[in-house]
Computed example of a mutant assay.
Amino acid sequence: MRLVRQIMGLPISLDLPRGEVDAAEQAFAWLHEVDRRFSPFRDHSEVARFDPAGPHSAEMGEILELCRTYERLTGGAFRARLPGRGFDPSGVVKGWAAQRAADLLRAAGVAEFCLNAGGDVIATGRTWSVGIRHPDQPMAVCAVLAVRDLAVATSGSYERGEHIIDGRTGLPARELVSLTVVTADLTTADAVSTAAFALGRDGIAWAAAQPGCLVHAIDAGRRVHRSPALADLLVPPGTMAS
């Protein structure tokens, strides 16, 4: 069974081989709540009303800590607050929220599922095939990964244009066109992929050095870079994982 909802302005799909609909609806309800509370595009959201001095909800505290961590780790290339712009933690919220949704599914006893939040994926309980979109061919993939109990997140400029800003310069990050991170949880995968993209070419090695992270990246010259260990997950052309 595959369920799809439009949340956060993007399609979020959930594949459930055993059809646990009630648990799925709980996960979608959480994602709707995140959209309501943490969207920078909703006038009365916690993000739109953000005051650095607080008070903050517990969930906002988690988001702020993620933003501070990756700003520090990237020397300011990743920033949730850019000069002349309001607070926007979108670079970490989607992965954080989807990981929490996956945790809700597991707590409800769902052993096998694949949650895809606009291309950021958590695959659990069995081996799933996860494609990395080709940056120049919207209907093609440049690689397919066979993943189990892993998360995959991709940051790129091909879907939403130059929306990732290098916080050190205030300019769009243009040295990469795609950077994918594979690791154990989607909170980390999403934050690391966004932060690494903001770093540019230096972000490839930086992301690969983060604990437990494997990287597949394509630079602006269309050269492919990937962690050697990622070869163990690559599906050979003409074959597919289950």
Rank of each mutant, 00 (worst) to 15 (best):
A217M: 02
R85F: 07
R133F: 14
V47N: 07
M139Q: 14
P52M: 10
A184G: 14
G95W: 08
L214Y: 04
D88P: 04
H134L: 12
G238Q: 06
D149M: 12
G19Y: 08
A220T: 10
S242W: 10
T239S: 15
A151W: 00
C142W: 03
Q137I: 09
L230F: 02
S242Y: 11
V235P: 02
P83D: 09
L233D: 08
M139A: 15
I132W: 10
K94L: 00
L234E: 06
S39Y: 02
A208L: 09
D120L: 06
P135E: 13
R168S: 00
D51A: 13
E175I: 03
M1G: 14
G200Y: 01
A23T: 06
A53D: 14
L105S: 02
S155H: 03
A198R: 04
A153E: 02
G86Y: 05
H134A: 12
L115M: 09
G212H: 05
A241S: 08
E112L: 09
A80Q: 06
E20T: 04
M1C: 11
T188W: 06
V192Y: 08
R223Y: 13
T187F: 02
H163I: 08
A189W: 03
D35C: 05
G54K: 13
T169M: 11
L214K: 05
V235F: 05
V192Q: 06
G75M: 05
A53Q: 07
A217C: 03
R106M: 11
V93E: 06
D219F: 05
G91P: 08
D232F: 10
W206P: 11
A207N: 00
T154A: 10
T154I: 12
A191T: 03
A173S: 15
A27M: 01
A29S: 10
L150F: 11
L82W: 11
Q210I: 07
E71P: 01
R18N: 14
A97W: 01
R36D: 14
R201H: 11
R100M: 09
D35W: 00
V144Y: 08
Q6G: 12
G19S: 10
G19P: 03
G61K: 04
D185H: 12
S178F: 10
G131T: 12
R49A: 15
V34Q: 04
S129P: 12
V110F: 03
W96R: 05
G200M: 07
L186C: 14
L145N: 04
V177R: 13
T194W: 09
S39D: 10
L3D: 12
A151V: 12
Q6E: 15
S157Q: 10
F50Q: 10
H44W: 13
T69S: 10
G212P: 07
A102C: 14
C114Q: 12
K94F: 02
F113R: 05
E59W: 09
V4R: 02
F197K: 02
R36C: 08
R18W: 07
L31H: 08
E46I: 04
H225C: 00
H32F: 11
M139D: 15
L214D: 05
V47L: 09
S90F: 03
T183A: 05
P17A: 02
R68V: 12
S90G: 14
L31C: 08
D136G: 13
C142A: 11
A27H: 03
S45N: 08
P52L: 11
A195L: 05
D51I: 13
R79H: 07
R201W: 02
S90L: 07
V130D: 02
A209P: 08
D35A: 11
